[in-house]
Simulated scan of single mutants.
Amino acid sequence: MVGAEISPPLEGEDPEEARREDEIEPADDDVIEGEPETDDSQKGLHVVHREMRSYRGPLPSPETLERYKEVDSRFPDEILAAFREQRTHRQEMERTLLAGSERRANRGQWLGTGLLGVGLAGGIWVTLAGQSVTGGLMVTAALALGALSYVFGDSRKKD
């Protein structure tokens, strides 16, 4: 083969087998066969043209849509309509999830603030009732728990 790089066979390997592994066997529909117009030194050389295309996206490639259209002219419109329905559904679900997350976060903040207020009020009431050490500890504990909740409350979301 002219211009092809063939790796040497490994020890104990059949040279013919190593040559076959280096050749690419094209699919039948990818082969353009024929004798190119060449001089006698390249007689018997076949030209193989292989083209690969890659496409990524939520919809089929334009070429694929055209092939669907050849089968039934409504297929591309139906595929696009299904894509639009899926997109709308996904956006509604994301909106619902976000609204629920916001409600839970707000509820947690109000409950935390309420518990902090109850702890502070209880500590002050116990202090005014004559138990200054116990009341002071309750106020300190309420403030410390409030501060810890504020500092470490979102640590689960950061991970």
Rank of each mutant, 00 (worst) to 15 (best):
residue 71 V to D: 10
residue 8 P to L: 04
residue 139 V to S: 05
residue 23 E to M: 12
residue 10 L to K: 10
residue 125 W to G: 13
residue 154 D to S: 15
residue 77 D to I: 02
residue 99 A to W: 03
residue 101 S to G: 12
residue 102 E to Q: 10
residue 117 G to L: 13
residue 41 S to A: 09
residue 129 A to S: 15
residue 58 P to L: 03
residue 11 E to W: 08
residue 52 M to V: 15
residue 65 L to A: 02
residue 152 F to V: 07
residue 145 L to A: 13
residue 78 E to D: 06
residue 1 M to C: 13
residue 104 R to I: 09
residue 60 P to D: 00
residue 78 E to R: 09
residue 73 S to V: 11
residue 27 A to H: 11
residue 26 P to Q: 06
residue 143 L to Y: 02
residue 112 G to K: 02
residue 3 G to R: 13
residue 23 E to W: 09
residue 99 A to H: 05
residue 79 I to C: 00
residue 58 P to T: 02
residue 8 P to S: 08
residue 35 E to A: 11
residue 76 P to L: 00
residue 14 D to Y: 04
residue 118 V to M: 05
residue 51 E to W: 06
residue 137 L to W: 09
residue 95 R to H: 08
residue 17 E to M: 11
residue 79 I to M: 02
residue 73 S to D: 15
residue 124 I to Q: 04
residue 18 A to G: 03
residue 71 V to R: 12
residue 152 F to H: 15
residue 94 E to H: 10
residue 3 G to C: 10
residue 144 A to E: 09
residue 29 D to N: 12
residue 75 F to T: 00
residue 71 V to A: 13
residue 110 W to G: 00
residue 137 L to T: 07
residue 113 T to G: 09
residue 66 E to S: 06
residue 25 E to F: 09
residue 58 P to M: 04
residue 7 S to F: 08
residue 57 G to F: 00
residue 24 I to W: 05
residue 30 D to G: 04
residue 72 D to I: 04
residue 33 E to P: 01
residue 104 R to S: 09
residue 84 R to A: 15
residue 159 D to P: 06
residue 118 V to I: 12
residue 36 P to T: 01
residue 30 D to T: 07
residue 7 S to V: 08
residue 128 L to Q: 12
residue 26 P to F: 05
residue 21 E to Q: 13
residue 87 R to F: 10
residue 13 E to H: 01
residue 5 E to F: 11
residue 84 R to F: 10
residue 109 Q to E: 12
residue 104 R to K: 12
residue 48 V to Q: 07
residue 57 G to T: 01
residue 92 E to C: 01
residue 126 V to S: 05
residue 84 R to E: 15
residue 115 L to W: 03
residue 91 Q to C: 05
residue 8 P to I: 03
residue 80 L to W: 05
residue 59 L to S: 03
residue 120 L to P: 00
residue 134 T to M: 06
residue 107 R to L: 13
residue 13 E to P: 00
residue 115 L to T: 01
residue 87 R to D: 11
residue 68 Y to D: 00
residue 103 R to K: 08
residue 125 W to R: 11
residue 124 I to F: 08
residue 33 E to L: 14
residue 45 L to N: 13
residue 113 T to A: 15
residue 7 S to G: 11
residue 33 E to W: 09
residue 109 Q to D: 10
residue 158 K to W: 12
residue 49 H to V: 13
residue 11 E to D: 13
residue 149 S to L: 09
residue 35 E to W: 03
residue 38 T to L: 14
residue 159 D to S: 15
residue 116 L to N: 04
residue 128 L to K: 08
residue 94 E to N: 06
residue 139 V to Q: 05
residue 59 L to M: 10
residue 1 M to G: 11
residue 120 L to W: 02
residue 114 G to N: 06
residue 117 G to W: 03
residue 137 L to M: 14
residue 82 A to P: 00
residue 96 T to A: 15
residue 10 L to W: 03
residue 92 E to S: 05
residue 20 R to N: 04
residue 1 M to R: 06
residue 132 S to G: 03
residue 142 A to R: 00
residue 16 E to T: 11
residue 56 R to M: 04
residue 50 R to Q: 15
residue 146 G to K: 00
residue 145 L to E: 05
residue 123 G to W: 00
residue 41 S to W: 07
residue 152 F to K: 14
residue 25 E to H: 10
residue 6 I to S: 05
residue 64 T to R: 01
residue 154 D to N: 10
residue 101 S to W: 06
residue 54 S to C: 06
residue 79 I to E: 00
residue 101 S to K: 07
residue 43 K to P: 02
residue 145 L to T: 12
residue 66 E to K: 07
residue 126 V to E: 04
